[in-house]
């Protein structure tokens, strides 16, 4: 089944790459159509993967990158009702392609079926965290777009400009928090505790506060597009921690 997943992911990454490249060349319709085909192939690969492992994705280069790419591809496709994705579609598609190439480059197949992965709280911990990663990439792109616009025009971002980015950030934070809740349940039944003084727990707490920072930014940051800069940097830091 790993071979089928690989066979599906190779054209999918190529399609997203082409879709991202041709997007600014006034080929938007074709680019959008290609992105839908690519998203379908990624979804098919994820389904084949699920048939093989029969559980939600956990960490591991293939599983993690495939799931984050799938989340980002579908977020880009279905968020247009609420969010104006003009200006970020190209970068979103190129990032999906990069994630798929990273999934293929690992060449390590699916993560071994460690016995702990059979428990729903463990599966949800990883899967929701990875889903949050995909959503936060979209939030990063939206913040970065506003930042660049503010820097180019020399004008401030209005509150309305940042609303879509903040909502996406909030969705990512909720997914991350739900993942942490699952992890806390795992910790409670597996270790009798809801908190551990370890590197991973401290990083998770830092991540949640980092996601909350752009939503509670001091007044002096809300000038000259600095707030969108802070938002993009905070989300980027979280993405790097989740993806790498």
């Amino acid at each position: 089944m790993v071979e089928i997943v690989t066979i599906l992911l190779i054209p999918a990454s190529g399609i997203f790459l082409v879709s991202g490249i041709i997007h600014p060349l006034a080929q938007e319709r074709l680019s959008n159509a290609l992105a839908w085909v690519g998203a379908g192939l990624v979804a098919a690969a994820a389904f084949c993967g699920w048939l093989e492992i029969r559980r939600l994705p956990v960490y591991g280069q293939l599983e993690a990158n495939l799931h984050i790419a799938l989340t980002l591809a579908f977020c880009m496709a279905f968020s247009t009702r609420w969010i104006d994705t003009a200006g970020i579609r190209r970068w979103g598609r190129l990032l999906v392609a990069a994630l798929l190439i990273r999934a293929l480059a690992g060449n390590d197949g699916f993560t071994p079926d460690y016995f702990l992965y059979q428990f729903p709280s463990v599966q949800l911990f990883f899967a929701l965290r990875l889903t949050a990663g995909g959503v936060l990439i979209l939030a990063f792109l939206l913040y970065a777009r506003n930042w660049i616009r503010a820097v180019k025009s020399g004008r401030n971002n209005h509150a309305a400009d940042l609303r879509a980015a903040s909502c996406t950030l909030m969705l990512g934070a909720i997914l991350f928090l739900a993942s942490e809740f699952s992890g806390t349940l795992w910790c409670a039944v597996g270790y009798g505790d809801t908190w551990h003084w370890t590197s991973n727990f401290l990083k998770s707490a830092a991540i949640f506060l980092l996601l909350m920072f752009p939503l509670h930014a001091p007044r002096w940051l809300k000038e000259n597009g600095r707030l969108s800069g802070v938002g993009s940097l905070c989300t980027l830091a979280v993405i790097l921690e989740i993806v790498l």
């Binding site: 830092a206 506060l209 980092l210 909350m212």
Partner: peptide, 14 residues
């Protein structure tokens, strides 16, 4: 109650 204090606290704790 200021957001400035919230921002500094969050940055410090992070």
């Amino acid at each position: 109650a200021s957001l400035d204090l919230t921002g500094w606290c969050l940055a410090g704790i992070i």
